[in-house]
Design a protein around this nucleic acid. Sequence first.
DNA 1: CGTTCATGTTTACAGATGTAGTCGATTACA
DNA 2: TGTAATCGACTACATCTGTAAACATGAACG
Lengths: 126, 126
Amino acid sequence: MTDPTGERISEAEHAVMEALWTRSPLSAGEVADAVMQNRGWSLATVKTLLSRLVAKQAVSTQPQGKRFLYAPRIAREAYLGGESRRLVDRLFGGSAAGLFAHLAEAEALSQADLDRIASLLEELRK
Amino acid sequence: MTDPTGERISEAEHAVMEALWTRSPLSAGEVADAVMQNRGWSLATVKTLLSRLVAKQAVSTQPQGKRFLYAPRIAREAYLGGESRRLVDRLFGGSAAGLFAHLAEAEALSQADLDRIASLLEELRK
DNA sequence: CGTTCATGTTTACAGATGTAGTCGATTACA
DNA sequence: TGTAATCGACTACATCTGTAAACATGAACG
């Protein structure tokens, strides 16, 4: 529902989504400003990405005078969930614990991560 | 190190890698047999994917008579690590705990996941 | 020895992606 | 009111991906 068509959002498009999740609605120019700080894109590129996102129904437009204001149509949470699940399914046979175990073994977990996870766990099991 | 060039492995290519991680070295035909069970690929497709993986230095070849035997050049662990890290970096600002929190909130964690993670945690903090 | 089978190599081709330029309409400023 | 700055739409184009056919060649079999 939050992802009507299930169309995939590409890496570059995702950067644009992040801008819109941070603040919206925004005009194309504003999105470009926000995004150009990290990626070095030209305004033209940002406009293309916005069009594609609109086509994918991931972003909605609302006319303001003669311009458009763009806003996300899919929630960040839903996107994160989809991507996370896809990874867990593809690489760890759907087991989130598998992913966790892997991160643990690879020592990819900081002490802060461990503390935070421990407290979340406690929450969940209470 | 285990990924000399850092060339990305695509989704389809990954399926071939899984076959080789399961058993190797294998001839192209054997890979095709293994992989065709899940994906419905033709032998031609598998051969293309193998070539691309060889080009990407993700798979090595060793001549056997007139044909090649293919084997993974990058360890599965390294691949999983790379992909997991990429996701965590891109979507959760590098915080594995962020990913965990998300999975937890999305109720994407089964009781088994929780138990397993709890015991892993205990291990780690001991 | 000729024919078929398996294989690696080459070529193909449509769709997705990254990155951007051009153009016509509009708006806002001088 | 003329002119420059904006903006959306369209076009461009190289690369990557998914999917596969065609071809050449050597091997195995009859």
